[in-house]
């Protein structure tokens, strides 16, 4: 490598030495704060209400769903009660004619998803979609009065 490139390479190392660990730290913070919402927009004390605004069951009691309307916006929580036969499940929120992919439920027992505040939840449907069979496993339609 010629001299000017070696100089550039060394400067890049300094950049990487700060940037790469910063990425790792941010990724760790994302895990620590729990999936579904970021700490800076939902302070921990106000993040979760004591009781959900709406609860329901999926997949004949294998999974429970709960909707929390928090200060930071709506949060959808899914809790696996029994092991799922098809663990790789995508979670969609169908509202109006749109379908919003919230995330996936893998092998973890508990997941939370933040719902964008602009989504009209009244009458929206939470849909569990199986990647294995390309079919909808189960749905739940939220109350019409949900803000």
């Amino acid at each position: 490598m010629i001299g000017p490139k070696r100089t550039m390479h060394r400067r890049m190392w300094w950049g990487a030495a700060f940037t790469f660990p910063a990425i790792l730290i941010l990724a760790w913070m994302g895990r620590e704060e729990g999936p579904g919402y970021s700490g800076e927009t939902l302070p921990a004390a106000a993040a979760m209400k004591a009781s959900p605004d709406e609860t329901w069951m999926f997949l004949e009691g294998a999974m429970s769903g709960a909707l929390f309307l928090t200060d930071g916006g709506p949060v959808l929580e899914l809790q696996r009660i029994r092991p799922l036969k098809k663990p790789d499940v995508l979670v969609y929120l169908d509202h109006g004619e749109k379908s919003l992919l919230l995330g996936e439920v893998g092998t973890q027992p508990h997941r939370r998803f933040a719902v964008p505040g602009t989504v009209d939840l009244g009458g929206a449907t939470v849909r569990l979609y199986s990647l294995a069979h390309y079919e909808t496993l189960d749905t739940h339609t939220l109350n019409e009065e949900t803000p």
Binding site: F20, I23, L24, L26, A27, G30, R31, E104, Q108
Partner: peptide, 21 residues
């Protein structure tokens, strides 16, 4: 660097075993 973010903010948010991190 982009892939560190891709894995850190993707796979490691779903599979949370500390050993993977």
């Amino acid at each position: 660097g982009l892939l560190l973010g891709h894995v850190g903010f993707g796979f490691l948010q779903t599979e949370t075993h500390p050993a993977l991190f």
